[in-house]
Amino acid sequence: MGAAKNIWAILEAEDESSGNNVSQIPYSSMVVDTSLPLPRIIPLLIELCKDLFKNWRELDDSLFSVERVSGGITNLLLKVSVKEDTERQVSVTVRLYGPNTEYVINRERELQAIKYLSAAGFGAKLLGGFGNGMVQSFINARTLDPSDMRQPKIAAQIAKELGKFHQVDIPGSKEPQLWVDILKFFERASTLRFEEPDTHKLYETISFEELHKEIVELREFTGILNSPVVFAHNDLLSGNLMLNEEEERLYLIDFEYGSYNYRGFDIGNHFNEYAGYDCDYSFYPSKEEQYHFIKHYLQPDKPEEVSIAEVESVYIETDAYKLASHLYWAIWAIIQARMSPIEFDYMGYFFLRYNEYKKLKPLTFSLVTSSLSASV
């Protein structure tokens, strides 16, 4: 709770000096216990909203309703609706951070980026903060499924939005964070102990010496590609994409992992997410599907005018960085296996991602090396 308040204090100080208005965003010191069943969380959320928004403080609790929107493998999202009068109902989204997520998520970095991304039209508007979460405007749209991302029309929309997202300027350091974050994850993952004997036995089968060598080798290999550095989403899975089909408007949401990073990583990571949490990589986009996405990313208004050479260059770059995506989330999963209370086979997820990395590595290295040799 104290750490969260400190983050908001930092943002207020920064924005007072720059003339922005994030200091006007209300903050509550409340912490909502995410381990409680929903019926017990509901009155706490009502209390939280009344604490944050003064125009709701005198309203009767019966005018509030709460429903679960979704729950990924890090956060819990809830929709709070309020009947402000007989004709007007307002809804907000309350995002409860998963316990121990500070081990893998830089909340200060996230909050610093949100206000600029929101101003650029991305995601939901930040309305308030509290000890273990935030309140944002409610987006009237459905969350995508992995299969949606394969549809050519939706893929083109995602590519167009990602292209615009990558053009947003976020003040501060522009240094790419990929290898900084991976090495930080590695340091934490390599010193864990598990209470469950079976999980610890699995953990002991991981060769961290081998894993570190792979990180160093891949960092050097991808470095020769000179992938442009952009402000990247870094977690563009289907659950972080919403679509209002009536308005044909696509939303990129949840910027927890957002940072300056390599363009190839953000696109390659998105392609990996076609496989879903089950990691069925038979759904990884074909070369034709990747070309379709890349063309709309580079030139959404006239995709067919993008040169094949330019598309092929991004395709090669993306193919290399998809390996980094596998390493990133594999090592992330080891930490989550120890820290997260959410029922998900994180250790199994590590092996799925790391085994896919090892399977693809020789093919990708050969493809990239051949392409670079041909272009000399």
Results as ranks from 00 to 15, higher is better:
Val66Tyr: 07
Gly123Ile: 03
Glu210Cys: 11
Gly223Ser: 12
Thr369Ile: 01
Glu209Cys: 04
Arg193Ala: 08
Glu312Phe: 07
Ala189Gly: 02
Ala159Gly: 10
Ser70Gly: 09
Arg219Lys: 15
Arg150Lys: 13
Ser313Gln: 14
Ser29His: 05
Tyr357Val: 08
Tyr346Arg: 13
Asn20Ala: 13
Arg338Lys: 14
Arg68Tyr: 00
Phe344Thr: 14
Asn106Leu: 03
Tyr281Met: 06
Glu47Arg: 14
Cys49Met: 15
Asn55Leu: 02
Ser282Gln: 11
Leu298Val: 14
Asn355Lys: 08
Glu87Lys: 13
His212Cys: 03
Lys201Asn: 11
Leu363Tyr: 09
Ile182Gly: 05
Glu58Ile: 12
Thr93Ser: 07
Glu67Ile: 12
Gly131Lys: 09
Leu127Phe: 03
Cys49Val: 02
Met134Asn: 13
Lys153Thr: 08
Ile316Leu: 07
Ala374Gln: 13
Lys358Val: 03
Tyr321Ala: 02
Asn226Gly: 01
Val230Trp: 12
Thr318Cys: 11
Tyr251Met: 05
Leu327Trp: 11
Leu76Ala: 11
Ile267Gln: 04
Gln167Met: 10
Phe194His: 12
Glu58Lys: 14
Arg88Thr: 13
Thr205Asn: 09
Lys359Leu: 15
Pro176Arg: 09
Arg249Phe: 06
Asn132Leu: 05
Leu178Pro: 05
Thr369Gln: 07
Ala119Glu: 12
Ala189Met: 06
Ser340Glu: 11
Lys201Leu: 12
Tyr284Ala: 05
Gly348Cys: 10
Arg188Lys: 13
Ile334Asn: 05
Ala189His: 09
Asn100Met: 11
Met134Gln: 13
Ile182His: 05
Val306Pro: 01
Pro300Met: 00
Ile206Cys: 07
Tyr203Ile: 01
Phe208Glu: 10
Met1Leu: 10
Ala120Tyr: 00
Asn100Arg: 11
Asp301Gly: 04
Tyr281Ile: 04
Ala4Pro: 00
Leu236Glu: 07
Asn234Val: 10
Ala113Trp: 11
Gly19Phe: 06
Val32Gln: 07
Arg150Asn: 08
Tyr251Ala: 04
Glu305Phe: 08
Tyr274Phe: 15
His270Asp: 09
Ile331Ser: 00
Tyr260Val: 07
Ala141Gly: 06
Asn21Tyr: 09
Ala120Trp: 02
Glu288Ile: 10
Glu14Trp: 11
